[in-house]
Write a protein that binds this DNA or RNA. Structure first.
Length: 120
RNA sequence: UUUGGAAACCGGAUAGUCGCUGCUGUGCUUAGGCGCAGGAGAGGAAAGUCCGGACUUCACGGGAAAACGGCGCCGGAUAACGUCCGGGGGUGGUGUGUGAAAACAUAUCAUUACGGAUAGUGCUGAAGAAAUUUAGACUACCUGCUUUUGCAGGAAAAGGUGAGAAGGUGCGGUAAGAGCGCACCGCGGCUGCUGGUAACAGGGUCGGCAUGGUAAACCCCGCCGGAAGCAAAACCAAAUAGGGGCUGCGUUUAUGAUGUUCCCGCAUCUGUGGCCCGGGUAGGUUGCUUGAGGUAAGUGGUAACGCUUAUCCUAGAUGAAUGGCUAUCGAGAAGAAGCGUGCUUCUUUGAACAAAAUCCGGCUUACAGGUUUCCAAAAAGC
């Protein structure tokens, strides 16, 4: 799964708390073993993406950061290449996200997108 | 060489590929921005947020006191500290010497929240006869009375209880005893004596010397402290609502106010459009990393640390970058086999704690493994 920069669409990041709450309350949701995805269309054109790893998953900041970085890398590989543009995404980490293989995260993420009918 | 302790330091490596955030140079773009190249990018604790500062805003004429909070042997280091260094005292252990013992001297190690208990108040369980008051007679002791059980008195030397029973040892003394007397040791007060900057140590002198412990109990004494914190703070500043100024239009039909005490009339405002101004929210920029800075050499100091010269620039994010994946190597761990019994080979596993958030100095807590130095003990060799 190697992609170059030119093949990817630009992904902006979600920053405000209201935007997160909007997607969480109004958006569609699909749960897999390693990742939970929430999404809804936006009006601005390019896709935006945000990550949530709560303290319930792990009390260690090191672990939470690692989960966030793995999800960010997976999102760039999957959503950046195959996801529909013009949507807001939130990826929620789970406890298994740190230890499971990277291939498994990619697979779960793709499956979630397919179920939400967002594969381009 | 092994084990234990102390201190200092390090705390996975290399390559490929795909990315992220600043910086420098450069190209394009009206601008926002988009490319290309180069180079940089988590810790010893970044953690806990427990102390001390720098810095910022607010308050404030200066000083003092009260209240509240903190600190507390002495000297030094420092920007400062509750930190660090050196010293003193106390307590405990060990070795040596003196001694009958108690104890003292000396060396060394550890530890210490170490101002005041004679300013006052409070508390002091259980056990024990008696626990702080010039106390106390349970057993044993001595004297007298009594026939035995016992009664009266003397007495803190012995036993028992306890953390602690009011100095210890010896001699004298006595009915038995007791600092009752004496010697040595210990203790307390005083000291314009000696050494030391000082804490303190030593000496002298007085007292036969019950009057304890607790101040991380109240309290007393001395010293220190204005408050909040980078989400501090400064600047730029959209939309909406509201405020002020100028001005155009409209209306005396209605409401009220003012000029004006009442009536009438008139004017202005209360209506609405435009422009401008200031406060201020979202958002943005600055603060933001050159600093009580690092490294090296010299130098002063027992040390903490200081001084001089040279040289270097080393993260700056903000839903929060500093990475994802793959391969190789790997300190180490577990298991099996072989024999030379601590080595070899094979298999499996594959690195602790923990991630900056304005910046420094400390403290505390977490931490697999490794390196160096010093100390102690044991074994081997000489």
């Amino acid at each position: 799964m190697k992609t170059t920069k030119s093949q990817r669409q630009k992904l902006l990041s979600l920053k405000k708390r209201e935007e997160f709450l909007l997607v969480q309350n109004k958006g569609k949701k699909w749960v897999s073993e390693t990742v939970i995805i929430q999404t809804m269309p936006n009006d601005i054109g390019p896709s935006r993406i945000g990550f949530t790893v709560s303290k319930k998953i792990s009390k260690s900041a090191v672990t939470r950061n690692r989960i966030k970085r793995r999800l960010r890398a997976a999102a760039a590989d999957i959503i950046g290449v195959k996801g529909k543009s013009g949507h807001d995404y939130i990826l929620v980490g789970r406890a298994k996200s740190e230890t499971v293989s990277y291939e498994q995260i990619l697979k779960d993420l793709k499956w979630c997108l397919k179920r939400l009918e967002l594969l381009a």
